[in-house]
């Protein structure tokens, strides 16, 4: 599949298959189009060529790279868990326990550390019991030890839920040692050089403009 912005291809000739229980890494330099790929797979972007095939009734869990919260919106840890669906209390508890946040009480999410918030987003995705889990650089902004913890969590979730995992990462070393397959995006050489960032500003402002 490929995604084009204007005349320029952001990504092209990408071929990814994620089977149940597999951990697939999507690796690439800044600007190679990793996030664009992920958004296309999630159905957040329309693709300009190729096809995306999904298992019927595929439940997808998505952990975004970052989430900017407006502090005027009061949200606690447990309220965030039911943001996109209603779930029984014990499901919430077990999802929080899976990422080690169950003994935190119910504090406002604004008081969480970066790593805790990232794990909360992971718990929020897995409460949907996804068949496919897509994580956009979950270890970003976390130190090396922290990224190991995140990776262990993801491995555990993959075993427990038997879900496919698509993990966007910079870490080629972790990818080759733990991944079932590694997809490396290289900047497109047939036409113009790739944009300097995975999300060029024009694209960002467009998405932000979606606020009504």
């Amino acid at each position: 599949m490929g995604v084009r912005r204007g005349e320029r291809w952001i990504v092209r000739h990408v071929d990814i298959t994620v089977d149940r229980g597999q951990l697939i890494y999507l690796i690439g330099a800044n600007g190679a189009g990793k996030s664009t790929c992920a958004k296309a797979i999630l159905g957040l972007l329309d693709i300009d060529e190729g096809t995306i095939e999904r298992m019927s009734s595929l439940e997808v869990g998505y952990v975004p790279q970052r989430l900017a919260l407006n502090p005027t919106l009061p949200l606690t840890v447990r309220r965030l868990m039911t943001l996109t669906g209603r779930f029984p209390k014990d499901h919430i508890e077990s999802a929080l326990a899976a990422v080690g946040l169950d003994r935190l009480g119910d504090p406002p999410v604004t008081t969480l550390s970066g790593g805790e918030f990232q794990r909360l987003l992971l718990a929020r995705a897995l409460i949907h019991r996804p068949d496919l889990l897509v994580l956009d650089e979950p270890a970003q902004g976390v130190d090396t030890a922290g990224s190991g913890v995140v990776l262990d969590l993801i491995q555990g979730i993959r075993r427990d839920l038997r879900c496919g995992v698509l993990l966007i990462s910079h870490d080629l070393h972790a990818a080759t040692s733990t991944g079932d397959d590694v997809v490396v995006l290289v900047p497109h050489e047939h036409d113009e050089p790739p944009p300097a960032r995975p999300d060029p500003p024009a694209h960002l402002s467009r998405r932000e403009a979606r606020k009504l």
């Binding site: 958004k39 999630l42 159905g43 957040l44 997808v60 869990g61 998505y62 975004p64 989430l67 919260l69 407006n70 919106l73 949200l75 965030l80 943001l83 996109t84 669906g85 209603r86 929020r124 949907h128 998405r207 979606r210």
Partner: peptide, 17 residues
């Protein structure tokens, strides 16, 4: 309420769900 609140926190998360 739920879609609107989810869209307020993150349009992407709301769309994926």
């Amino acid at each position: 309420w739920r879609p609107l609140l989810a869209a307020t926190v993150s349009p992407d998360l709301a769309t994926v769900a």
